[in-house]
């Protein structure tokens, strides 16, 4: 390999080349077939402790969607009530969930890129009858999402509505409320008691809850699940390229140290 090629690899973020070092990887006592060869850099569990002990800079903890810091703070506090810090470990904020959501809203999910988006949309003015409720809300149980709003707009309107409801009910900003009162706001949101133009508030609540869980448990690549702490709390081993016979058949629970995509393929 030429020096030039080595440099290219470094630029790709590969600190060391990790091709198939361990060709004896096996499950059921059986060596992996040929299809694996050369594809995957196996996780080097030996590791370089000097690198691992250094706290990486969180350059991805900045905003690519939200423009107003107050909106982002409100979002963070709402997710923290859904998935709070406790004796098990960090909550949504500690896990980076608000950054996860920000990054998702800036990307293709935020603009519903893979959804069918052609009209007509039904928004309450059309009611063809029948048992399926068209237009009363956008989460009709049997027809799925039908709103014209894209998810980033749902978040904008949802956050605005939470703030308005807090002001109207408690005469305080949401972020100034104590946890119990914040929960009251979220309960109202969940029970469709908060006005949001175009959608039922429970729809926003459900999407907020789902995003929070995604941010807690998606690979750290996406900005949440900081240091794999979501996986550690859940005793989920993350990216494992193989389990042995003994692991598969064990009667007792086996603790397995989690690994991420970054650790496994790019470290």
């Amino acid at each position: 390999m030429s020096e030039h090629d080595e440099k290219k690899l470094d630029a790709n973020g590969s600190s060391r080349r990790k091709f198939l070092k361990n060709s004896g990887i096996a499950a059921g006592g059986v060596v992996v077939g040929g299809a694996l060869g050369g594809l995957i850099g196996l996780n080097d569990k030996g590791g370089d402790t000097a690198t691992k002990d250094t706290e990486p800079e969180q350059q991805d903890q900045a905003l690519e969607y939200f423009t107003n810091r107050a909106d982002f703070d409100l979002l963070g506090q709402a997710t923290e009530r859904i998935f709070p810090e406790d004796e098990n470990g960090p909550g949504a904020i500690g896990l980076g969930v608000p950054y996860y959501i920000d990054h998702q809203l800036a990307g293709k999910w935020g603009i519903n890129a893979k959804d069918y988006r052609q009209g007509p949309f039904f928004d309450g003015k059309h009611n063809p009858g029948g048992e399926v409720r068209l237009g009363e809300g956008q989460e009709q149980p049997n027809l799925g999402y039908q709103s014209q709003l894209k998810y980033h707009q749902v978040y904008d309107l949802g956050i605005e509505a939470i703030e308005k409801y807090s002001q109207a009910t408690f005469n305080e900003k949401f972020t100034a409320l104590d946890g119990e009162k914040q929960d009251e706001v979220l309960v109202a949101l969940e029970n469709d008691e908060v006005d949001i133009a175009g959608i039922k508030s429970s729809f926003f609540f459900n999407i907020l809850r789902q995003s929070t869980l995604e941010g807690a448990y998606a690979d750290p690549l996406y900005g949440g699940n900081k240091d794999m702490q979501g996986w550690k709390m859940k005793e989920y081993p993350g990216v494992q390229l193989s389990y042995t016979n003994e692991q598969v058949e064990s009667e007792e629970f086996i603790e397995i140290k989690p690994e991420s995509l970054h650790n496994t393929f790019f470290n």
Binding site: K114, D115, Y116, R117, G129, V132, L134, N142, L143, G144
Partner: peptide, 28 residues
């Protein structure tokens, strides 16, 4: 996110429970 799935922005299907209803697209 369904990385390997058909892109519904290009094509989906519509759905209803019975003939008397208006079918709406499966958007997701």
């Amino acid at each position: 996110r369904g990385e390997l799935m058909q892109d519904l922005s290009r094509e989906t299907l519509t759905f209803r429970h019975k003939s008397s209803q208006r079918a709406l697209p499966m958007r997701q």
